[in-house]
Design a protein around this nucleic acid. Structure first.
Lengths: 195, 195
DNA sequence: GGCGTTTATTGACTTGAATCATGAAGTACC
DNA sequence: GGTACTTCATGATTCAAGTCAATAAACGCC
């Protein structure tokens, strides 16, 4: 299963630990490959996020729809990222988010109960979880700060320097929504920064 | 040490596990009580956040200062909350944040290296860390969504229903900054919501 | 290759919130 | 108990970004 090779590499790299053959067998036993076509939903608002997915290939967006029907993208995700509404996944409550494939998407998915097992039984997996949790906390802190202290233009520059590949992979209107801007405003910002 | 009782209770409650006498001794050995007077800094921008603090009594704010000299409050903290710039604390890099006591403050503080030890040696402590990490992830997700999708007024209502005690404990201009608003705007929002 | 859909640009106008300015309450402190 | 500092309220004005509208470019697809 070539799908799993990238996944194993990822776990070993992030955790700094090696997976045994048994570990790998265990992971393959309960992480199920799942394919979604572009525009299909990994999660729909109101549903419980039963699965967490590891993206092997493709991209996705996590967004909400507000009262006025406007969409707000909270997260853009690419290969080697995890896909879930963590609130719903941890607490098994209905989600307020939608997760939609922006390109044809291949994930390896598993349930919360199964993840708990992995955390207990696979040291590399548990170490990985700790590192990811740290990284998330840091990234969230940064993003919140950017949202509060930066102007629209600064947030865009920030994105360019931190995630330059986003510009290749995601259409501009998605980037705009992710930055909390209207597509028109982002278009104007880009125009001005060429001068 | 009466300081530690509240701390032990907190750990046991959050983790759902009991602390042994040995555990408690170990915690008391390396969590140091520290007092700060109102206006004193727990952390200053540019310094490495060497300590994480558990608030026993008092309150604090975590904020940045932007190019124009404006302050932006990212976090308001009360009793039984943890105090740190996690990015700086985990990575030992200089912090972009300031943490200042808003009232006289009593914390129990410890270093990153020591926390690692606790995580290994005290099951309740490690369980607590996992729960907190989940809670943080969920809270961050919510806050980010609120920042992106809600109007100023909705964010204020949200704050009232989620953290009503904030209004008693923090002056209005701090609340405004935490919500990403000017004090004037918050004052006007409050005026309108009385009608 | 051409038609339809999606995405991006540009302009005119509107609006929500910031800024600037002033005065009124509170609160602290000697 | 009065002076100084801080906090809060209110009005007038400015500004950044959103909205609405129309066109242009890019992409998918039969």
């Amino acid at each position: 299963m070539s799908n799993f090779e990238a996944f194993f590499d990822y776990i070993q790299e992030i955790s700094g630990k090696l997976l045994s053959e048994d570990d790998k067998q265990l992971l393959m036993a309960h992480f199920k490959p799942k394919k979604l076509r572009k525009r299909q939903y990994f999660l729909q608002e109101g549903d419980v996020c039963k699965y967490i997915g590891f993206i092997v290939k493709g991209s996705a967006r996590t967004f909400t729809v507000d009262d006025k029907g406007h969409e707000h993208i909270l997260k853009l995700s690419l290969e080697n990222w995890w896909l879930a509404d963590f609130e719903s996944f941890y607490l098994l409550t209905p989600s307020r988010f939608n997760i939609e494939a922006l390109e044809n998407l291949e994930v390896l998915q598993s349930t919360n109960a199964q993840i708990e097992e992995y955390l207990k039984q696979i040291p590399a997996f548990s170490a990985m979880a700790n590192v990811i949790s740290q990284n998330y906390t840091i990234a969230n802190q940064k993003r919140m700060q950017a949202a509060m202290s930066y102007t629209a233009e600064e947030r865009y520059e920030d994105l360019i320097s931190n995630y330059p590949h986003f510009l290749q992979r995601f259409p501009q209107n998605m980037i705009a929504s992710y930055l909390g801007l209207s597509p028109e405003t982002l278009s104007r910002i880009r125009k001005n920064s060429f001068k």
